[in-house]
Simulated assay, not measured.
Amino acid sequence: MQNGTSFFSQIPPVTKNLIIINLIVWLAMFILPGRLGVGLENYGGLHYFHAADFNPAQLITYMFMHSTQSFAHIFFNMFSLWMFGMTLERTLGSARFLFYYISCGVGAALVQEFIWMLTWEDTFVRLLSTNFHLDFPEAKEYLQQMTASAEGKEWLARNMNIFITIGASGAVYGVLLAFGMLFPNAPLYLFFIPVPIKAKWMVIGMGAIELLIGLSESAGKADGVAHFAHLGGMIFGFLIILYWKKKGTFHGIY
């Protein structure tokens, strides 16, 4: 409490409302599946664009949904949004911050779609190889034969619904990137590390880690996390901030 105002009232409006919306949707994901008979992520989660259940609105809706299997998913995303989003919103202004946040989330989704486009065939071939005890070339030929017909293409579109991503991480990684670019020398403390790390080094380190894990994931060691989507949020954030810097948007604050 300070001067009679609450802690919550000190959070800028866009950051505050993004956190509220994410929490409401997360609670709805617990309640509504029992009434609908299916999880909300089947409607609002990001699907591959060739999947039967894909629709363009998912490029936005997915970033407001989080796993109900682990509180850590929404907690760390919202904690990071609160921690860095407040400063960023006050720096950019609410309207520009909202544009930036949504743009990074959509950018992350587009990168994830591109990665799925490159990897879906190998994923299906590996599944067929495992389920039907085929070697890789045989499984690939079997998939090509199966999808040569209209019925096979329908089967493929239905089964492509296995590709689904939810979470605000792509947008949040964009927020972290912007903080690192605008306040590169700001000292940050990480868990279990007693010395401060400059924001620019933390952002570079996080990007490198996501790239390395993402490449490992592409090699067949998937951990269920959309690492390239995180990178996508950072890439789109970098381009937007770079453009705004060249336009003189920030008036030398960085």
Rank of each mutant, 00 (worst) to 15 (best):
G105L: 02
A150T: 12
N185R: 13
V203N: 10
L98V: 04
T68D: 04
M29I: 07
G205A: 15
K16D: 00
C104W: 01
G34A: 14
L212H: 09
T61F: 03
K198C: 04
W82M: 03
A150W: 11
K153C: 05
G152T: 03
K16V: 02
T123N: 13
A168N: 13
I166A: 00
L143W: 01
G44D: 06
Q112M: 12
W82K: 01
I74D: 01
V38G: 05
F76C: 03
E151M: 08
S94C: 11
F99R: 06
G85Y: 01
N159C: 05
L231E: 07
S6E: 10
V172L: 11
S94V: 04
S94A: 15
T5W: 07
A168S: 15
T130R: 13
W155K: 10
L211T: 07
S218Y: 11
A219K: 13
L98H: 00
L23H: 03
S149A: 13
V225I: 15
L143H: 04
F132C: 12
G170A: 14
Q2T: 13
F183M: 02
A199S: 14
Y101T: 04
I197C: 04
A171G: 12
W155H: 10
T5L: 11
M86D: 00
A150I: 14
L188H: 04
A226Y: 00
F84G: 02
S103T: 09
F75E: 12
V106L: 03
T165W: 09
G207E: 01
Y100V: 06
L40R: 07
F238G: 13
F192C: 08
F7T: 15
I21L: 03
S9D: 14
T87Y: 00
M78K: 03
G205S: 11
V111D: 05
F191K: 13
S169I: 04
